[in-house]
Design a protein around this nucleic acid. Structure first.
Lengths: 329, 329
DNA sequence: CTGAAAGCGCTAACAA
DNA sequence: TTGTTAGCGCTTTCAG
């Protein structure tokens, strides 16, 4: 547990010189450098981030705000964030809010207390007012879920267009009775995806039946099941379902199977997100792929730029419709 | 961005007094306390963890080492860790090693550099020598995966017994030709679970066929599929499969379905872990439940105790066989 | 009950 | 090229 003082003494130089070789800057003679490096090795010295961080007024930590760690949608994004963070010598503090304002507040305090240098918010249920207030003093990026009016930079995809294409695909393969399993309309992405759904139907002269549109409180599996239960019992049963998340779609799939019906023969399904499991179901799920890894790396790069004082612009990334068994009937 | 100095000045007291009311200790008159609290509010002061941490030589951060964040098995454990950490005013640094030694080293350096106060290791592929060396100077807990000889405290379940019960269940419902999809034997849990499998068969007078035992390089979905492909093509096809992880089991299930066979009628399946998705497949998966949340909280409590200088004992938690559709034929 | 002052480990401005 | 020194923001010992 040596410190920089002891290394300096051991090497017969000043602490400033040690610091210089540590940070590879300033000018140091080869001979002095060797002496210092020797001393470092001999003492098994590791510079303390505690001292360095205080001196530099930074923590080199990025705070990631997600609603639920068990939602696989976030896994790949986090992976991307971590990769980018690591190359810039940042680390990530993973914070699960459970969409609980109290927890959220604890995490917000972390940046106020200089425990983190910035925030990547991915929680759709985030308290926007708090976020805006925080953004006045700290670096913040919105990832995937966002509010334009906040003025906080975001990285996301075109949800309306993505939903439009998904539903258009269903229409193209012959479906007209298409149900929508949406999440709560308080979320922007839910409103956007619903818009895309409507546009696809309208453009093709298919009337929109409100009883085909279901809203769930959350985007969990059970909620997809519940919604599908109601849809199956409809007098005029749809032949296809568009769910705004793979978790909902997988719930719907399970419910259809439980009722002895077949996907895609009786009911076709399209999901959203392309989580790992969308490829493990039977049948595999047609779904909209978001470039999650890229989204993560870009969000991290943006945040780091912002921390360094740069101005950053919001970005809208491409998406892709992945056609698989659940619509290939 | 006020600091403690400015608060002291504003309140007309010394920094020591401000520190005292901040930490709610030492003795401060009610009157002085009010003055200080007023100043804090007026200046919108938030104490900096950077200063505090340097002074206290701690980071209040727990480093969590996992191989893959997308593996849902870890989600619930992490959730448990976070809950416990939060109540003790610690935060968690999530580190995904990808079973890559270089990355692992970066993370190990983090504790050497005082960026983290301790480690919870859940990576089966961890470099045990490094871990042992690190454990001499830093607090470390092994969670789920462990090595006894390391002398590092662990929290886990009885893998041998759990596997034994899983296979015994298959035998009880009439199966004799039971295949095993195991992961690489370099992992302790793989060896333990194989032992349980063998004991169950032996106790019931069922001969062990080596061609019924398959090893996979990793515990991913595709590896389960691959293994199942070979098993299905066996001349003497098994009527049941025990997979040492749900991910493998779900891969096996998919492959069985792809071959037009039925679970559990043609082949029954038992998995391991009770990840969320084990309940979303069709049919739902019989599996061994590990108390993941509890495992996480306990690991965190143990680590925090160790950080505080206490001696901690390893713990073996209970498991439970959850019988669902994939064995209810 | 309160204040002065040292010091945690580091970086960087300034001087030599 | 190298050294001296101030100071990042906090806690805590020791005096008063």
């Amino acid at each position: 547990m040596a410190n920089i003082q002891q290394v300096a003494k051991q090497a017969g130089v000043s602490v400033a010189t040690v610091s210089r070789v540590l940070n590879g800057q300033g000018t140091v003679t080869a001979k002095t450098r060797i002496k210092v490096e020797d001393a470092i090795k001999r003492l098994n010295y590791e510079p303390s981030m505690l001292g360095r961080n205080l001196r530099n007024s930074e923590s080199r930590i990025l705070l990631i705000l997600i609603p639920k760690i068990s939602n696989p949608f976030y896994s790949e994004i986090i992976n991307g964030i971590e990769t980018a963070a690591l190359t810039h010598h940042y680390n990530i503090l993973l914070c699960e809010t459970d969409s609980n304002p109290d927890r959220e507040n604890i995490y917000f305090d972390l940046v106020r207390k200089k425990m983190a240098d910035g925030i990547i918010s991915m929680d759709p249920a985030v308290n926007v007012e708090s976020l805006i207030e925080l953004a006045e003093s700290y670096a913040i990026i919105q990832c995937s879920e966002y509010t334009v009016e906040s003025g906080i930079p975001y990285v996301t995809i075109d949800n309306e267009e993505a939903a439009y294409r998904a539903v258009k695909h269903l229409i193209k393969i012959g479906h007209e009775k298409i149900a929508l399993i949406n999440s709560d309309e308080k979320f922007l992405y839910a409103r956007q995806r619903q818009l895309g759904y409507r546009r696809a139907l309208e453009e093709n002269g298919i009337p929109i039946s409100d009883h085909y549109i279901h809203h769930t409180q959350q985007i969990g599996f059970e909620y997809g099941q519940q919604a599908m239960r109601k849809i199956i019992n409809l007098k005029d049963r749809p032949t296809a379902v568009f769910a705004v998340s793979d978790m909902l779609a997988i719930g719907a799939l399970k419910e259809i199977n439980n009722n002895g019906l077949n996907v895609p023969d009786d009911i076709a399904i399209v999901g959203f997100d392309k989580i790992d499991f969308s490829n493990m179901t039977h049948p595999t799920l047609t779904t909209v792929a978001q470039p999650m890894h890229k989204m993560g790396t870009i969000a991290a790069e943006m945040l780091i730029s912002e921390i360094q004082g740069d101005q950053v612009e919001s970005i809208i990334l491409d998406h892709e419709l992945v056609i698989r068994e659940s619509t290939s009937g």
